[in-house]
């Protein structure tokens, strides 16, 4: 199973933005391997959430752990049967451990998108 977490510039903390996070952490629960990739959507002119969601789907992501997520991205991830869990902020490794211990909840609120406004 592949778990993805958007990361800040420091490649350590969970990024508050999903679509425009500079990096994404991919963690494979079977091999325990982890990989940090640049998010190709970070500088997109528009549709960053959609592009980032596509990036996750192309990586066969099963679980996304994020602080927030827009409606369009959520629709893509739901169509691809990727579950979205709510991150608690701070260190990504702590959030990953919390998820594996069953302590994170499904994200229930999806914002309408900031579209360059925030």
């Amino acid at each position: 199973m592949i778990i993805a977490i958007p990361l800040d510039e420091n490649k350590k903390d969970v990024c508050v933005s999903f679509g425009r996070a500079p990096f994404v952490l991919f963690y494979d629960t079977e091999s325990n391997a982890q990989e940090i990739s640049e998010n190709p959507a970070a500088q997109a002119q528009g549709g960053a959430g959609l592009k980032a969601a596509q990036f996750l789907v192309d990586h066969h992501t099963n679980i996304l752990i994020t602080i927030r997520c827009g409606q369009n991205a959520a629709e893509v991830l739901q169509a691809a049967e990727t579950a979205i869990y709510e991150a608690q902020g701070g260190d990504a490794a702590v959030n990953l451990a919390a998820y594996l211990e069953g302590k994170l909840e499904l994200l229930s609120h999806f914002h309408a998108g900031f579209h360059g406004k925030a």
Binding site: G46, L50, N72, A79
Partner: peptide
């Protein structure tokens, strides 16, 4: 089509394109 769309209005899910009309 999905790779061409610079507005990212198309996504590729389960080997099919999916459209976001607002985008």
């Amino acid at each position: 089509c999905v790779d061409f769309c610079r507005f990212h209005a198309l996504v590729y899910i389960k080997e099919k394109p999916m459209i976001f009309p607002d985008v």
